[in-house]
Simulated scan of single mutants.
Amino acid sequence: MKYIDEFRQHDLAQQLANSIAQTVNPDRHYRLMEFCGGHTHAIFRYGVQDLMPSNVEFIHGPGCPVCVLPTGRIDNAIQLVEQHGVILCTYADLMRVPGGGRQSLLKAKAAGGDIRMVYSTQDALKIARDNPDRQVVFFAIGFETTTPPTAVAVKQAQAEGLTNFSVFCNHVLTPAAMQAILDAPEPVQIDAFLGPSHVSSVIGSKPYETFAEHYAKPIVIAGFEPLDVMQSALMLIRQLNAGQHTVENEYSRAVTREGNLKAQALMAEIFELRPHFEWRGLGLIPHSALKLKAEYAEFDAEQRFDMPAIQASDVKGCDCPAILRGAKKPQDCKLLGTVCTPENPMGSCMVSSEGACAAYWSYGRLRQS
């Protein structure tokens, strides 16, 4: 199968492992942050960490869009259903994420709320067409990867005159999060980044160039397959050994320097930057998220329903916020595997298919540790 099987070959993995072992400086510790949750799952699913020398460490980053959504935004969505009687449409990963008081969209649905799982924005638009007497809100989340489909839905709703459709926008931006991690008062020690895959197919590799130069951190845009991750790690190690800090593109079969210009133009047409936005684990980050422009305000659920900002705390003892910024690893959390399981999640990192805690649970790392 093209672009799949050839990136999972055992012999090539062993060759890459040997090259990495020969390239590392035994007197140095290499701390590589994989930004994407998809990379975290690839690392554990295929045993990539086991093929690394002991002085090469993968640090899990905040690249799970469901995980970084603050608790208060979950509570906002539940209020839309309970107080305004809307039909709320959302992706499945978001259904079980705990909000304030451990309430979740799934529990609100069980209590009678009209909350529906959808596969795409087109599903949400169809629900709006089929229910002209009901307000339908699409709970939009994700990085730059899922933002263009939301923009398409807004344009389509405007063209069709769907006055009962709106978007609760929670789209966030990758470079801003990377910057926030390094600018934190007590920053995590990170030597280099495995850059996100799908995000970079939209925004390209160019936005990282100034970042790499300013922070003197090498970045390699990495694909999601195990050989992608290993090759990218080797490229980062070579840069670190040479004292370089440039942006390299390992995922050239999907990512270009300029990115998808059509998608970028569409996002710029529909959205603008928020002055600041709260991230779970990272706090308020300026210019790190998007909102609908004024000319599309009629499709903005926050304006249509006058939604208040809600400050809600995470579950006591849950280390998901620290895990998201790389300060801790899942096995450091005392709740993991005890009261916190996929059936009874305490934090978003155990819920999402891209969450670090879910990766530890799914691929046996919890039992191994």
Rank of each mutant, 00 (worst) to 15 (best):
L80V: 09
V81T: 14
V81Y: 07
E82T: 15
E82R: 14
E82A: 15
E82D: 10
H84M: 04
H84C: 03
H84N: 06
G85F: 09
G85H: 07
G85R: 13
V86M: 00
V86T: 02
L88K: 03
T90C: 13
Y91P: 13
A92I: 09
A92P: 08
L94P: 03
R96V: 10
R96I: 10
P98V: 14
P98A: 15
P98I: 15
G100Y: 10
R102P: 02
S104Y: 01
L106H: 14
K107S: 12
K107C: 02
K107V: 05
K109W: 02
K109A: 14
K109N: 05
K109E: 13
A110E: 07
A110R: 03
A111E: 07
G112C: 10
G112W: 10
G113W: 09
G113K: 10
G113E: 13
D114L: 06
D114K: 11
D114Y: 10
I115G: 07
R116H: 04
R116Q: 10
M117V: 15
M117A: 14
V118F: 03
Y119T: 06
S120E: 06
Q122S: 02
Q122D: 04
A124H: 02
A124Q: 03
A124D: 05
L125Y: 06
L125P: 06
K126V: 12
I127Q: 08
D130C: 04
N131A: 04
D133H: 15
R134G: 00
R134M: 01
R134W: 00
R134V: 01
Q135L: 11
V137L: 01
F138L: 03
F138A: 00
F139M: 14
F139E: 04
F139Q: 07
A140P: 09
I141F: 08
I141S: 07
I141D: 11
I141M: 13
E144A: 08
T145S: 15
T146Y: 04
P148F: 00
P149Y: 00
P149F: 05
P149N: 01
T150F: 04
V152L: 10
V152M: 12
V152N: 02
V152P: 01
A153W: 01
A153Q: 06
V154L: 05
Q156I: 01
Q156E: 11
Q156L: 09
A157T: 02
A157W: 00
A157R: 05
A159H: 15
E160K: 08
G161V: 12
L162H: 08
T163Q: 04
T163R: 11
F165R: 07
S166N: 09
V167C: 08
V167I: 15
